[in-house]
């Protein structure tokens, strides 16, 4: 595989990165008189008001439901606890898929990054696999792993694996040769070069990959649940849709969006812990 190594350092390899990875402008410490968070809340409330107002007047309630109904649905699901069971199933599949895919992708990326022979050997096959829409593998996974949670984990893992792999590989290729030479001159063994120079140096690329991959893990899990399951948010959104329950669909979408935000935040936190050296206030 020749991933798009030209991609510059900050932006990672994947082009159709989900919205969540759009870099945010650094918040000014106390710029403006009204804090940005207030503006953001105001915008949210305005959208909800317009939605509520439009529903039933401009657009049929059947199509867009309305915030009050969605809120009521969320409240009911929370009170009787059904939502947690579904969240749990989805989170489990997402988490497991993410971990398996990340570890696999990182290991593969590092291994191929440091072995030119293997990477050239596998190049055409990996390219072909990467071009494959991974979602199309879902039926296969159902056959292999059954209707249970394993097939969802597999789908999430495969999506994550390629993204993390491509970024890791590019990161390993990007490592400053001078640093490697320097370590070798100081009698570093090959293993030491990999562990103490190549891996730490590629780390920011790995994290870029993880950040891109996180929402895809969720996508994989939810998609898997939509295809065949009796639990999980994917199942719930599918089920609500088939019942023409628009409020239910919106309620699940809301929960999925919340999960995505939370998961991204988690990756950011881990990254800022392991990359302390990057954080220099200017």
């Amino acid at each position: 595989m020749q991933p798009d190594i030209n991609a510059d350092r900050a932006t990672a390899v994947n082009v159709d990165a989900p919205l969540s990875s759009i870099p945010q402008a650094a918040p000014l410490k106390s710029g403006g008189r009204v804090p940005m968070a207030l503006w953001q809340a105001a915008l949210g409330i305005a959208v909800l008001l317009v939605w509520q107002g439009a529903s039933g007047r401009l657009v049929d309630n059947f199509f867009i439901s309305n915030p009050l109904d969605v809120g009521a649905r969320l409240y009911r699901w929370t009170m009787d606890g059904t939502i947690f069971q579904h969240i749990g199933a989805t989170l489990y599949a997402t988490g497991m898929g993410f971990v398996i895919g990340s570890v696999g992708g990182a290991v593969l990326g590092i291994w191929l990054g440091v072995s030119p022979f293997a990477s050239r050997l596998l190049n055409p096959y990996l390219n072909a696999l990467n071009a494959l829409p991974k979602v199309a593998l879902a039926p296969l996974f159902v056959l292999w792993f059954g209707l249970g949670i394993e097939s969802k984990i597999a789908l999430a893992a495969v999506l994550v694996l390629f993204l993390v792999f491509l970024n890791t590989f590019a990161g390993v290729r990007e490592v400053d040769q001078d640093l490697i030479d320097g370590a070798r001159l100081m009698r570093a063994t090959r293993a030491q070069v990999i562990i103490k120079v190549i891996i730490p140096s590629a780390m920011s690329w790995v994290f870029a990959g993880l950040k891109i991959a996180m929402p895809y893990a969720l996508i994989g899990a939810v998609l898997g649940e939509m295809i065949a399951a009796n639990r999980g948010l994917g199942y719930l959104v599918q089920f609500s849709g088939s019942q023409f329950d628009t409020a239910g669909v919106f309620a699940v979408l809301f929960v999925i969006a919340l999960l995505a935000v939370g998961l991204n935040h988690l990756v950011d936190m881990v990254q800022s812990r392991t990359e302390r050296w990057r954080i220099v206030s200017r």
Partner: peptide, 16 residues
Amino acid sequence: NTDVGYMTQKDSLLPW
């Protein structure tokens, strides 16, 4: 040649 210590023109400290 591991018998030499080489201080390169460009500093090669490990940034992390």
